[in-house]
């Protein structure tokens, strides 16, 4: 089955843009929210590049991709069924919590974010939505916003709220989408799942470290402290640590994704 693409309907309203795409059948078109251009300082910045990075405007998917949405994708692209996908693109746990290759079952509710998907699978999904994975900077910049402000990273109360997610053992099961919207109307960036980003593998520099930073920076005691501008931002730091531990074919029970788009 082919996804029929409608011309992008751009509804500009203040900072909001909704790009509507008709997906297969019953699945509602995913909403994207416009994120305005800004100069942004990442938690990962080092002294050398401490100046704000200028980031162009883009659109971020309002919610992570759900099991229902990914099921529709698999139905439309059977090469991504768990029993058909080439092993180089996923590991053995890919969609293993679904009851069948094209059936969700009790352990994967339709409005839960899809997890146990590899980076390759996430990329393929986003392409099917005429989108791409966000970069780490795009993700971090969007996730820095609270409901009231575009950069809540310095707010201790906000940080604490994010950290509370880690106190929930994952044996309690995933929540569903539909959390509180942040300033840009994007939801569930925190406290639901980890999310793939397009350039996740750049979070740890290449194995050959001769002309780059120490590749082990994120892994050691002292080094980890040195490589972060904002040592107090544990919630984001753990995302980076998580993503840096992965290979592109890996999947975990708490790792999902959302997509992003360039704005014209």
């Amino acid at each position: 089955m082919r996804a029929a693409m409608l011309p992008l309907t751009l509804a500009r309203w203040l900072c909001g843009i909704t790009a509507t795409i008709a997906m297969a059948g019953a699945i509602a078109a995913p909403a994207y929210q416009a994120i305005p251009a800004t100069g942004f300082v990442s938690v990962l910045a080092t002294e050398k590049d401490a100046a704000p990075v200028s980031l162009a405007a883009f659109a971020m998917r309002e919610e992570p991709v759900t099991n229902a949405e990914f099921l529709a994708f698999v139905a439309a692209h059977p090469q991504w069924r768990r029993d058909a996908v080439p092993t180089v693109f996923t590991d053995a746990r890919y969609l293993a919590h679904w009851s069948a290759p094209e059936q969700l079952g009790a352990a994967a509710l339709p409005d839960q974010p899809v997890t146990q998907v590899s980076w390759f699978a996430a990329r393929a999904y986003c392409e099917s939505e005429q989108a791409r994975l966000p970069t780490w900077l795009e993700w971090e910049r969007t996730a820095a916003a609270s409901a009231d402000t575009d950069d809540a990273r310095g707010d201790p109360a906000w940080r604490r709220k994010l950290l509370d997610w880690y106190a929930q053992p994952s044996s309690r099961g995933l929540g569903s989408i539909g959390g509180e919207a942040n300033l840009y109307g994007v939801r569930d960036l925190h406290a639901l799942v980890w999310e793939w980003v397009d350039d996740y593998s750049a979070l740890i520099v290449a194995p050959d470290s001769r002309d780059q930073g120490d590749p082990d920076r994120m892994k050691f005691c002292g080094e980890a402290a040195l490589s972060l501008r904002d040592r107090d931002n544990y919630a984001l730091l753990m995302r980076v640590a998580m993503l840096s531990s992965l290979k592109a074919a890996n999947t975990t029970v708490n790792l999902g994704f959302r997509c992003a788009r360039d704005l014209p």
Binding site: Y166, S170, K219, M242, T252
Partner: peptide, 27 residues
Amino acid sequence: SKMPHNIDLHGVTGPGGGAAASFTAPG
């Protein structure tokens, strides 16, 4: 597991005490 983990054994002679070599994603 939600988090990746590793192990640094103070009884190891070698950089990181095994930390880099044992950096392990969930599952």
